[in-house]
């Protein structure tokens, strides 16, 4: 009985191999073109920025403070250190809270209407414009917590901004860990906490790290929320404590692009290159940790 429809299907099946290969090739070409377009945009952007600011890159740019009177001697010292402070603090806050929240939601929380409501909210928060987080940070950290216009307020605001992204990425990574791993650990008498800490979390760490890299990269490129929480445009010092005033690379770049004299536009381009450098260093660091993790796991 069952062989009848199969055989009719077989008889109607026409391989048309040439045609299928043709469309396959067309699709591949389209895919190639699309990836070339995005690459071309990136390369042309980089080339443009390099032409504008490449010759302005120097050690002075990293070690001098900003200058209006003497653009040739101007530097990014306070902005660079501000960005490093922000990145490190934001990483500390967002990684601990983000992974904690993801582990709870994925491994411990019951699946009921309430947790579904939380999931939905986190997903929506990931799409809220960053200036809104700036306003929230101003009300919550600067005014209510009385942290004033400090690097701590800035980092906490950026933490709020990227937490949803980190939680979603970490949850996906945890969900991708095969449940046989959990069952094996539990069957051998491990507690739920031991299972998560010794087996699930290490297995999910590469995926979690990818999410963290993307999120922190976004955070250090933000300008608007930092201006809202009171990052200054000009300061001749680097942050010394959590309560220090601060500025950041994107703010300095924004300030320079708006100036009338073309020297400052070159400085802005050089600043963009420095920001890209910081970003790449951080990503390389995280990728290095991830690779090391995976290698030590195999051994």
């Amino acid at each position: 009985m069952s062989s009848l429809p199969l055989s009719t299907a077989q008889s109607q099946f026409q391989p048309r191999l040439a045609q299928r290969r043709f469309w396959g090739a067309v699709f591949m070409v389209i895919c190639w073109l699309l990836s070339l377009v995005s690459l071309a945009v990136l390369v042309s952007l980089l080339v443009h920025v390099w032409n504008e600011g490449g010759s302005w890159l120097s050690l002075k740019l990293l070690t001098n403070y900003a200058s209006v009177l003497n653009p040739r001697e101007a530097g990014l010292k306070s902005a660079l250190w501000g960005t490093i402070w922000l990145a490190v603090l934001t990483a500390i806050f967002s990684i601990t809270i983000g992974i904690g929240a993801a582990v709870y939601l994925e491994e411990f929380a019951a699946r009921n209407r309430f947790t579904r409501f939380i999931h939905l909210n986190i997903a929506n928060l990931a799409g809220v414009p960053s200036i809104v987080y700036g306003i929230l940070g101003l009300a919550l950290f600067v005014r209510w917590c009385r942290y004033d216009e400090s690097v701590l307020s800035g980092a906490l605001t950026l933490t709020l901004l990227i937490l949803p992204v980190i939680i979603i990425a970490a949850r996906e990574a945890l969900a991708a860990v095969p449940s046989s791993l959990r069952q094996a650990a539990l069957a051998l008498g491990a507690t739920r906490w031991q299972t998560v800490w010794h087996h699930v979390l290490p297995a999910a760490l590469p995926g979690i790290m990818t999410g963290i890299i993307l999120a922190i990269s976004r955070a250090i490129g933000e300008t608007a929320p930092l201006i809202m929480v009171g990052a200054v445009g000009y300061i001749r010092s680097v942050p010394e404590s959590l309560r220090s005033p601060f500025t950041a690379l994107p703010i300095q770049i924004f300030d320079w692009t708006g100036r009338p004299q073309s020297e400052f536009h070159h400085l802005a381009a050089a600043g963009i290159l420095v920001l890209l450098g910081v970003l790449l260093t951080m990503n390389a660091l995280a990728a290095g940790i991830r690779a090391w993790q995976q290698r030590s796991k195999v051994q």
Partner: peptide
């Protein structure tokens, strides 16, 4: 602020 130098900690916002 730049000409005034390091005699004070001057912060300028925009």
């Amino acid at each position: 602020a730049e000409l005034y130098g390091d005699k004070a900690d001057i912060r300028v916002g925009v």
